Amino acid sequence: MNALRAWSLCVLMSSGCATAPPPREAPLVPSMAALDAEAARAMAATGAKGLAIAVIDGGRVVSTRAYGVRNAKDEPLLPDTVMYGASLTKTVFAYLVMQLADEGRIGLDTSISRYLDRPLPSYADESRYSTWSHLAGDERWRALTPRILLTHSAGFANFGFLEPDGRLRIHFPPGSRYAYSGDGLILLQFVLERGLGLEVGAELQRRVFDRFGMRDTHLQWRADFARNLADGWKADGSVEPHDERSTVRAAGSMDTTLDDLSRFVAALVRGDGLSPQAFAGMTSPQLPITTRSQFPTLQDELPPPMRRKDLAAGLGVVVFDGPQGRGFFKGGHNDSTGNTLVCLPRGRRCVLILANDVRAEAAFPHLVRFVLGEAGVPWDWEYGERAFWDGR
């Protein structure tokens, strides 16, 4: 067995083998002075008011840096400032689901109907979840499984309320193709809470936030967050106050800090708390991605010759192949937030960026490349046709 294969197997099995990892194909972690200078250049180029970057190397957090301001009062953005996690919530939630699968409490390929005491459309609509009653008459909901929901292949729009008539529906056979859906993750939350009797917020608190020392992370607003809280800036430069989210929503209600979330990211790339099989499943290709870009959600599939072979859905993340081997990433976004997480399991190297100014997204490809070297992250698919700052 050659050294690379032996080392890769050791990482997968978390066995603590003595075989050294192969030499890096990317630059070493940049100095903090160099990172500070590059972040300042990125902010000047994009006009972003606030940006925070964490660097993970060898499965440990080696740097958390914050730049700019957190609000219109020009109070400084700090690594422990509370920021909106947006859709990075989905990755944290997927980690919880993989733990439950490890414990045998949920089967990734088991129909959600097995966990519910009555048909999904018969549940009363609740603002906390979605409008399952709209699925009445479409028995395809019974084909939905946790794996299908985690790979965004339920056939839903992003959210039912975004449909032209506001009604949730299944657009294609579940599991047949990728189409990003927050409602799919909320449905899985519903299954855990109604079917298994779990409370997702409490489970994440115990299994993730407490375990990794994430003292300022929660899926519901806490009054103590107000002492050091980031507002946001929209693309037009206007300020958007931080939303005090009172409802646990697996699709994106997490408030967190760079310090906190970087601890989770380091643990995730190490595979902490998951069996080797669960970690491999979460971060390996599960379903080809066949669209030109992530949004709009229900766009046409590309003809087979035009589809990317280096891009697939993992479980709660997107998986890609690049010049440094396989990686995974996840983005998070709203009108005033831009977040990204990129990890290269070989070397256990990651970059986490939280920005309280959506304009900072234009610099994400350059900043990730500055830290990790060229990794092959599919930015054009993630963001579609938009201009990026090239570092010049």
Rank of each mutant, 00 (worst) to 15 (best):
L4T: 14
V11Q: 15
S14L: 10
S15H: 09
P21I: 03
P23N: 07
P23G: 13
E25A: 14
A26Q: 12
A26R: 11
A26F: 06
L28H: 02
L28D: 13
M32P: 02
A33W: 01
A34L: 08
D36L: 01
A44H: 08
A44G: 10
G47Q: 10
G47H: 14
G50Y: 15
L51V: 13
I53S: 14
G58C: 05
V62W: 04
S63D: 07
A72I: 12
K73M: 15
M83H: 13
Y84P: 04
S87H: 06
L88M: 15
V97L: 15
Q99Y: 03
D102F: 00
S111H: 04
S113E: 15
L116H: 02
R118I: 05
P121W: 06
Y123Q: 12
D125F: 13
E126I: 00
S133H: 14
L144T: 05
L144Y: 11
H152K: 08
A154Q: 06
N158D: 13
D165G: 12
R167W: 06
R169S: 07
I170N: 04
F172I: 08
P173V: 04
Y180H: 14
G182L: 04
G184W: 07
L185C: 06
Q189V: 07
F190D: 06
L192M: 15
L192E: 02
E193C: 13
E199L: 02
D210M: 05
G213P: 06
M214Y: 05
L219A: 05
W221R: 02
A230Y: 09
G232W: 04
K234R: 07
H242M: 03
E244Q: 15
S246P: 00
R249D: 11
A251Q: 13
D260R: 14
L261V: 01
V265R: 07
P276S: 00
P276L: 01
F279M: 01
A280D: 14
A280S: 14
Q286T: 08
L287D: 03
I289D: 05
T290Q: 13
T290S: 08
Q294Y: 05
D300C: 01
D300Y: 02
L302D: 11
M306K: 15
D310L: 13
L311N: 07
A312Q: 14
V317K: 10
V319W: 12
V319Q: 12
D321A: 15
P323E: 09
Q324V: 14
Q324I: 01
G325R: 11
G327W: 08
K330S: 03
N339T: 12
T340Q: 01
T340Y: 14
R348F: 10
I353E: 06
A360H: 01
P365A: 00
P365L: 08
H366T: 03
H366I: 01
G376F: 11
D380N: 02
W381F: 15
E382N: 08
G384S: 05
E385V: 09
A387T: 08
